[in-house]
Design a protein around this nucleic acid. Sequence first.
DNA 1: AAGGGATGTTGACATTGTTCACTTCACTCT
DNA 2: AGAGTGAAGTGAACAATGTCAACATCCCTT
Lengths: 187, 187
Amino acid sequence: MSTSLANAPYHHGDLRNALLEAALLILEREGEAGLGLRDVARAVGVSPAAPYRHFDSRGALLEALAVTGFQRFTRLMEGIATNDTLDHMSAMGRTYVKFALDNPNLFRLMFSPALRRDNRPGLRMAADAAYRTLRHVTGQEVEAGRVAALAAWARVHGLAVLLLDGQIAIQAGEDIEALVAEIIDNH
Amino acid sequence: MSTSLANAPYHHGDLRNALLEAALLILEREGEAGLGLRDVARAVGVSPAAPYRHFDSRGALLEALAVTGFQRFTRLMEGIATNDTLDHMSAMGRTYVKFALDNPNLFRLMFSPALRRDNRPGLRMAADAAYRTLRHVTGQEVEAGRVAALAAWARVHGLAVLLLDGQIAIQAGEDIEALVAEIIDNH
DNA sequence: AAGGGATGTTGACATTGTTCACTTCACTCT
DNA sequence: AGAGTGAAGTGAACAATGTCAACATCCCTT
């Protein structure tokens, strides 16, 4: 999949995507703080300044990463919407948390305060699209209106964050997914 | 309260606390990413290397900051416990969210993934103490056991995080505290 | 075939966290 | 009182980082 290392051409050919892929790997391995622009360039075998042809700054690279995260997240949610046989609300919650646990650092990046600080319209749009899908998927069950919907969302999101940060004590050998389902279905 | 700027003495006298105070100000103004060790030193009027007599690293300074955050948080929760007349569960939730909204960057720092990454026992202990208090305060109402308690905690924490990140759309002129109360009391 | 715009490289700069050797000063111990 | 020891601050330096400007290379259009 990667270009042959021998006789590496002057132009990479698809550097933007290669950078994103490498960055995603480093992100999940090292966390956002450990994701240096130079590291990404090094991983792809390119000079430290090369990424600037495709991203305005390190922040822009992170933004692009977060955007792809929201897109993958949105697609997961859409998958639920098409399935008629299950409880959408509960399935949404379990999928939401599972996504967070499967991609911890990406999930954290998607909600990173540092990224939200410098207004990045692309990120905001991707996030809004995800929330729209969320509302669409769960809208059928949530007839009680905004407050109930926000309460459900907060519960699911909080569960994801607390689990991610290791704040919820998990007993040895405990089935996390089962616990998540219990918590989500606890009314 | 600060030492007189004229004829500043070679030894500061109470540098550790002065650094923490200055760091807290910068943190709330600039966010964690904008909190440089040299900035803190500059704000206190001391050389860039001086903080190292009191903190092993920038991370240690951040840890100390987060610890004080958990202590203030814990004290707030204890205040609720002593008040017999109100619904502890609801009051806890509202206070929890209010603390987050009043000290956004400090709250974020307390749950910062970067800080949790390098195992800081002091932080973990402060956090555990806070959670113990939390359980103690709400324990009387939560007779339904662990799952219900976690569900309530997740809802409150998620609400705080989502509000902090501006993810929950607030309508113009809307009373946030009232909305929070509604969401928390929505069963 | 030519040349122009996109893509990469090289070298440099400011800034940051951190360390080391050094100074200053407040104490204790005789 | 006076010596000197250790805690607390200084200053210069280092490696690493994000970023930029000037230059090189190559693909694509005309």
